Amino acid sequence: MADKLRCAVIGAGGIGLDHLHSLSTCHRAAAVALAESSAQRAREASARFNVPRSYADYRELLEQPDIDAVTIALPNHLHGPVAIEALKSRKHVLLEKPMATSAKEAAKIVEVAKNMKRTLMVAQTLRFNRHTQAAKAIMERGELGEVYHARCFWRRRSGIPRIGSWFTQKKFAGGGCLYDLGVHLLDACLHLLKDFEVASVCGQTFAKFGPRGLGEMDWGKSEVDPKRLFDVEDYAVALLRLKSGRTVAMEAAWACFQNQETREYGIDLLGTNAGLSLYPAKLFRNALDGLETIQFNANKVPHSEDRIHHFVSCVLDGRKPLVPAEESLKV
């Protein structure tokens, strides 16, 4: 393979633009094409990031022999079908979360990637966060002792992504805040625990703001249905019991009345020797004069903080990604 990975981005919405920005700052990659069904979004993205080719149909893009890898930034219901087609076209694939809208479809993606011997990575951004990487090092040193319980959460005060967009319609999104926010924190939490084997789950979802047209924020570039459909959850809570005996409590909310001074998102790990919280990374433990709190600067981290840069390096160097597809399948 050449020194530079020839990449294409499928989808030029808000996240697709982020992919293009990352590729434009990666010295080991080049954005050679994009696929976007909106002619206006395609023109704007191509001009902004100097992408030489654009296609209205992603299938035509996948037929191009001079493209080594694609990054997929599409509505959730398209993740599975497009990823499978890309892998069958012998492209390496970076796929936005969630991997798919069903476990069966996610398993098929992993199977095809193995059969085609292509690199597949889900873009779980929090694994690359420097505070997550610092926390991972602490966990691997065993400083917490036995970790018996964890809590992960992402609760927005008012953060529904444009009511009526694909985010708020189940047929396109598969789910609401759980698929949008919860998957990020659950993945980072299980990654820190190095434990993805779940024995049981109990949970509950609610839709208390979106159906009333409340809690909206202006994010994204996708079209909005004038009927402003909202048939997904805007709050979800779950308790996971892992096969190891540990428990994980998870919360996700697009909108809720809460103290604005609290963390919007984070992870808390309880151990027999110390506790650890994110974000930022803080360690809580006993000291000679009582309790002490240590906040980590996390200046040096083992992996790039940019998920796209990491993916590019893994493909070019033949390394296993920080986000193995098998772990994403379990999330």
Results as ranks from 00 to 15, higher is better:
Met1Gln: 12
Ala2Asp: 02
Ala2Glu: 00
Asp3His: 15
Ala8Gly: 07
Val9Arg: 04
Gly13Phe: 11
Ile15Pro: 03
Asp18Ser: 15
Thr25Trp: 06
Ala29Gly: 06
Ala30Met: 07
Ala31Glu: 04
Leu34Cys: 11
Ser37Asp: 10
Ser37Cys: 05
Ser37Gln: 05
Gln40Pro: 09
Glu44Tyr: 10
Glu44Met: 11
Ala47Cys: 00
Tyr55Ser: 05
Asp57Ser: 12
Arg59Ala: 10
Arg59Ser: 14
Leu61Ala: 03
Glu63Ile: 09
Asp66Leu: 11
Ile67Ala: 13
Ala73Met: 07
Leu74Phe: 04
Gly80Tyr: 05
Ala83Glu: 13
Leu95Phe: 10
Pro98Arg: 04
Ala103Leu: 11
Lys104Asn: 14
Ala107Ser: 11
Ala107Tyr: 04
Lys108Ala: 14
Glu111Thr: 04
Val112His: 08
Ala113Val: 12
Ala113Phe: 11
Asn115Pro: 09
Lys117Gly: 11
Thr119Cys: 11
Val122Tyr: 04
Ala123Arg: 08
Thr125Tyr: 06
Phe128His: 01
Asn129Pro: 11
Asn129Ser: 14
His131Thr: 12
Thr132Leu: 12
Ala134Glu: 02
Met139Asp: 10
Val147Tyr: 00
Phe153Val: 08
Arg155Trp: 09
Ser158Thr: 15
Gly159Glu: 04
Ile160Trp: 07
Pro161Arg: 09
Arg162Ala: 08
Arg162Trp: 02
Gly164Ser: 08
Gly164Lys: 06
Ser165Arg: 01
Trp166Thr: 01
Trp166Cys: 01
Lys170Thr: 06
Phe172Asp: 10
Gly174Thr: 02
Gly175Met: 10
Gly182Ser: 00
Leu186Val: 05
Ala188Ser: 13
Ala188Pro: 01
Leu193Gln: 12
Ala199Tyr: 13
Ser200Glu: 02
Cys202Met: 13
Phe206Glu: 05
Pro211Thr: 00
Arg212Thr: 10
Ser222His: 02
Val224Glu: 01
Asp225Lys: 13
Pro226Tyr: 05
Lys227Phe: 00
Glu233Arg: 05
Ala236Met: 15
Val237Lys: 13
Gly245Trp: 04
Thr247Trp: 06
Ala249Asp: 13
Ala249Gln: 12
Phe257Val: 15
Gln258Asp: 07
Gln258Lys: 12
Glu261Arg: 15
Thr262Arg: 14
Arg263Leu: 15
Gly266Pro: 00
Leu269Met: 11
Gly271Thr: 03
Leu276Tyr: 04
Ser277Trp: 08
Pro280Trp: 06
Leu283Pro: 08
Leu283Asn: 01
Arg285Tyr: 10
Ala287Val: 07
Leu288Gly: 15
Ile294Thr: 11
Phe296Glu: 02
Ala298Glu: 05
Lys300Leu: 11
Pro302His: 14
Pro302Thr: 05
His303Arg: 08
His303Val: 03
Ser304Met: 10
His309Lys: 03
Phe311Thr: 07
Val315Ala: 06
Asp317Tyr: 10
Arg319Ala: 15
Lys320Ala: 13
Pro324Gly: 06
Glu327Asn: 09
